[in-house]
């Protein structure tokens, strides 16, 4: 029977096309991109071999340091925010609203499916100061605080970016963590209640430890997504003011397509890939250790 389910011709027919497209348009370019790191130039003017020059440049480039710092700061703040708000919403769904949570769960999830560009333009207009005061500044004016030039300074731009991404994605993490919370056996909660645990104690001592695995996977998903942030920044601030909100992804894009430096662009892309890989492995391993100790 395994002869039939192991028919080589059939395997080739079913798997072949997908593997071919994936190899040619994904695996090969990754390797090719690794090769680019040793060259300078671009597709139009041609390439010259420069050895490790790009890596030396990478190590000494203040713009890279700035972009790396922004990427890490953004990923840390947004990941913590997403998981925290998502978890609070999930607790609200499961323990307060119970079976009536369906409508609000659906509503809060909705922004997840929206194009980032559309949401970013909406937020840009909401927080705008000139030539016209946006919604937020009008409200601030109405309560007597006065308008703030949100996109004028690095700090306030960062705040708007974080606010927008949390608005967009908290519903997603809420649903992800909600399904995790539903998996907690009712008997365990009941046992906790019989032993006198209520409210916060119940959540802190029983629900939280039991939802660690789903929190961990959410953490990995979130970090992986936030390290690659691109759309939000391009559409909301364009990396400005100056390059204060430029993450590695955008810096790579500008280097490659505005300045035509494919080699250096690939080197930055490699740094980004390694960063994603390291963080995932680190989170995964450190959590493994914790779980076995507990």
């Amino acid at each position: 029977m395994n002869d039939i389910l192991g028919d080589r011709k059939a395997i080739a027919v079913l798997l072949g096309p997908a593997l071919l497209v994936y190899s040619v348009a994904m695996l090969l370019p990754v390797l090719w991109s690794l090769g680019y790191t040793l060259f300078s130039g671009n597709a139009i003017i041609g390439f010259t071999y420069v050895g490790a020059d790009n890596f030396v440049k990478l190590a000494n480039d203040p713009a890279v340091r700035q972009a790396l710092w922004f990427t890490v700061k953004y990923a840390a703040v947004v990941t913590v925010g997403q998981i925290l708000l998502g978890y609070l919403l999930a607790l609200l769904y499961v323990f307060v609203l119970k079976n009536g949570s369906s409508v609000i769960r659906t509503l809060v999830f909705f922004p997840v499916v929206l194009p980032t560009v559309a949401v970013a333009l909406l937020f840009q207009k909401m927080f705008q100061i000139a030539p016209q005061e946006g919604l937020v500044n009008s409200l601030l004016g109405a309560v007597g605080i006065g308008a703030v030039d949100w996109f004028g300074t690095a700090g306030t731009s960062f705040a708007v970016i974080v606010l927008m991404d949390l608005w967009r994605s908290m519903g997603f993490y809420a649903v992800l963590l909600y399904t995790g919370l539903l998996d907690i056996p009712e008997e365990l909660l009941e046992a906790g209640r019989l032993d006198g645990a209520t409210g916060l104690t119940l959540i802190w001592r029983i629900v939280l430890p039991l939802s660690l695995p789903v929190l961990l996977s959410s953490l990995i998903f979130s970090i992986n997504g936030t390290l690659k942030v691109f759309d939000t920044i391009v559409a909301l601030t364009g990396g400005g003011p100056g390059n204060a909100t430029t993450p590695l992804t955008l810096y790579m894009y500008q280097t490659s397509f505005n300045y035509g430096e494919y080699g250096y662009g690939s080197t930055i892309a490699l740094l980004l890939t390694v960063l994603c890989l390291l963080v995932t492995v680190f989170v995964f391993r450190s959590s493994r250790r914790d779980l076995t100790e507990a």
Partner: peptide, 10 residues
């Protein structure tokens, strides 16, 4: 896991 930036240039 691979970021899009890694395949754009090639």
């Amino acid at each position: 896991m691979v970021p899009g930036q890694m395949i754009l240039l090639p």
